[in-house]
């Protein structure tokens, strides 16, 4: 029963070009809360910063600013090494996330030992076997002896999930867990994750580029574009009535058999950015592609409420936002209001 609070997470990368240096803001003031038993989907295209957020939560990268706090069942802050007991990650590529040199058992035994979940050889093995059974890799003893290359992609991803659960993690970050798998086994892996979530009351962050699975697999959706969360809200709300122009673009681009023949209709926005925006700086990051861009878009929009628990960082919805902005600061899923033009330094050095 661990809650994870992410507040104003920022990650800057320094880009060097000759003697010039510039900053790329990969994640810009991202805030959300992961609650036991619920799934939040972080949706975006490549380069949107969603994986950077995942890696910061998994402590593979240090945030430039902002905080990530895990609160234990007692409501107290989890600190230091204990953080890894609580927060674990499932990686995208099952072909790369298991060490080809080691057996499947090794991948489970190490976290069990490291986190003091088992003592002694026999108990560790028994627990590893139980983990394998829980992810439907039976007979467990058989799988435990195998090496990653003897397993299929789906089986490997199940091992990766078992490994994430081995330390007794209550928060699981799943970074595109099925995008490298064959379509027919994707749902199986997602459903496995959903079952384990129910059984253990896990908090799950599901990172994906696939709107359809995001909608069906998660409770809330955050849409990221160029490092910023542009829209957030309940899954069905965000997908079925998207309010930010970028979310609309994404939703309209997804293949849909029901919409045969619509392919020739003009797209709601340019398919690719016309030119590079400065890597940081104020203003809406989508304004260079946005069909409804206005002069005001050169200022950073705040998260404006567009429905119950539904926010869009877009000036189009500023009207409704102004009326309730006082309430938003407390009610928002991450208290994300009050984002003004303080989006950080531009080029440095």
């Amino acid at each position: 029963m661990t809650t994870l609070e992410v507040r104003d997470l920022v990650k800057d990368y320094t880009l060097r070009s000759g003697l010039r240096r510039s900053t790329l803001r990969a994640a810009d003031r991202v805030s959300f809360t992961l609650v036991p038993g619920r799934t939040v989907a972080l949706v975006g295209e490549s380069g949107s910063g969603k994986s950077t957020v995942a890696r910061m939560i998994a402590r593979l990268e240090k945030p430039s600013s902002g905080s990530i706090t895990a609160l234990g069942p007692d409501g107290r802050r989890v600190s230091g090494r204990a953080y890894r007991h609580h927060v674990q990650m499932v990686f995208q590529d099952p072909f790369a996330s298991l060490n080809p040199f080691h057996t499947i058992e090794h991948h489970l035994i190490r976290p069990l030992r490291l986190h003091g979940r088992a003592a002694g050889r026999a108990q560790t093995r028994r627990l590893a076997g139980e983990l394998l059974e829980r992810v439907n890799l039976t007979p467990a003893a058989d799988f435990a002896r195998r090496r990653p290359h003897e397993l299929s992609g789906g089986q490997r991803q199940r091992v990766a999930i078992a490994r994430a659960l081995a330390p007794g993690a209550q928060v699981v970050i799943a970074d595109e867990p099925v995008s490298m798998l064959d379509v027919s086994i994707r749902l199986g892996v997602l459903n496995l994750l959903a079952r384990l979530q129910r059984e253990e009351n896990l908090a799950v962050l599901y990172i994906t580029h696939d709107l359809a699975t995001a909608r069906h697999f998660s409770d809330d959706i955050l849409v990221m574009y160029r490092g910023r969360v542009v829209e957030s809200g309940p899954a069905d709300e965000v997908i079925l009535s998207p309010r930010h122009p970028y979310t609309r673009l994404l939703a309209s681009a997804a293949p849909d058999p029901e919409a045969r023949g619509r392919s020739l209709e003009p797209m709601p926005a340019a398919a690719e950015p016309a030119g590079p925006l400065p890597p940081t700086g104020p203003g809406c990051r989508f304004r260079d592609r946005c069909p409804s861009a206005m002069p005001v878009c050169s200022r950073t929009p705040a998260d404006h409420p567009v429905g119950p628990d539904h926010y869009a960082a877009c000036w189009l919805h500023a009207e409704s936002g102004r009326e309730t902005s006082g309430a938003v600061a407390k009610a928002g899923p991450g208290g994300k209001a009050g984002a003004e033009d303080n989006s950080g330094a531009g080029r440095a050095g």
């Binding site: 799934t39 439907n136 039976t138 789906g154 199940r158 379509v183 027919s184 994707r186 749902l187 199986g188 997602l190 459903n191 496995l192 959903a194 079952r195 709107l211 359809a212 699975t213 909608r215 069906h216 697999f217 069905d236 997908i239 079925l240 939703a251 997804a254 849909d256 058999p257 029901e258």
Partner: peptide
């Protein structure tokens, strides 16, 4: 089966995800 593997974006939420019926697609217990 292939068609079932792609949840519809805008269609009904479908019975197969995130609720009790999930086991239907869950690997060996299918």
């Amino acid at each position: 089966m292939l068609l079932d593997s792609f949840p519809s974006l805008t269609g009904a939420r479908g019975a197969f995800l995130r609720d009790g019926a999930a086991a239907r697609h869950d690997g060996r217990t299918a």
